[in-house]
Simulated scan of single mutants.
Amino acid sequence: MTEEARHRALARGLRILEAVADGRGGLTVTELAELTGTDKSSVSRLVATLVDLGFLARLGNRRVVLTGRVLSLAKGFQKQYNLSEIARPYLKELCDVVGETVILTIRQGDYTVSIEQIDPEQPFRMVPHIGNLAPLHATAAGRAILFALPVVEQHRILDNLRDAPVEHPEVRLDRESWARELELARSRGYVWIPRTDDVERVAALAQDRNGLPLAAVSVYGPKYRMQSRVTELGREARATAAKMSRAAYGIRAREHGQ
């Protein structure tokens, strides 16, 4: 199956889930074909796959309904939404203390996505980052998350992202430079990537109760304001991340992999 065909199949599968969610008492394959504009044979195959994956269940009247597994996806979204709510006062406090833009970032597969941004009252501000995707190895926030994952998973991600496009060549991270950067991040307690542009970025990790990545807290700002304050800002970001961990899970964040 080509990549384009896989994309089409995924889109059809999602439309089927949406149609079943809107239908009361379940829907038959014929009804799904009519609602989604897809031929019955394709719908039948997709329904079978979704049943095998546990997202749909068959009833005795040939109808299919959603299962509780779909609810787990909604809970995942709700968890992210709640994380923003939990984090916001701490991000605002950090922004007020350091006088720079503060961003909350979470993992999405081998990438990161920014879900919250607090800007200071400064003449120079960062452009909005909400919704921005970036490879895990290419940003300070991404590395804060990456370095807290199991080593085998870190290697897998680095291999997957070997040819991923990056905005600046100096942010590329291969296995040779990985060990050095990991040790630096652990010794500092935060991540800072020297770059050739005019913006500085430092990030620290908020952890879940198992010590795995919950989110990264980043401080962004112009180099002329931040360059001499990287250590201070990194420590402030780390302190804020620890507060978030305690607020989210009632735990004391461990010192590792940030």
Rank of each mutant, 00 (worst) to 15 (best):
A206D: 03
V219H: 03
L161A: 03
P165K: 03
E100D: 07
L10D: 12
P135D: 06
A57D: 10
R107Y: 04
S218A: 11
G250A: 15
A74W: 10
S72H: 10
S228N: 12
E116Q: 11
Q122G: 04
L27P: 01
M126G: 11
R156I: 12
Y81G: 10
V51P: 01
T231M: 08
V20H: 00
H129K: 15
I145F: 01
T101F: 02
E255V: 09
Y90I: 12
V219C: 09
S114H: 13
D110I: 03
S41F: 07
D119F: 04
A203Y: 02
T30P: 06
E31P: 00
W192A: 05
A140Q: 00
L94C: 06
P120C: 06
A21R: 15
V199G: 05
L173C: 08
R107K: 13
A239R: 11
E183A: 09
L35C: 07
A134D: 07
P222G: 09
R62G: 12
R69L: 14
N82W: 11
W178F: 13
L66F: 05
S218R: 02
D22E: 14
V65M: 06
V64Y: 02
I251S: 05
E18S: 15
S84N: 12
A144M: 07
L94I: 08
R58H: 15
S114F: 03
A33P: 00
S42Q: 08
L50D: 02
T30L: 13
T38H: 03
K223W: 08
D208Q: 06
R246F: 14
F77L: 12
E4G: 09
A242R: 06
A144K: 01
L17P: 00
A19R: 02
A164Y: 06
R195T: 13
E181T: 04
P165A: 05
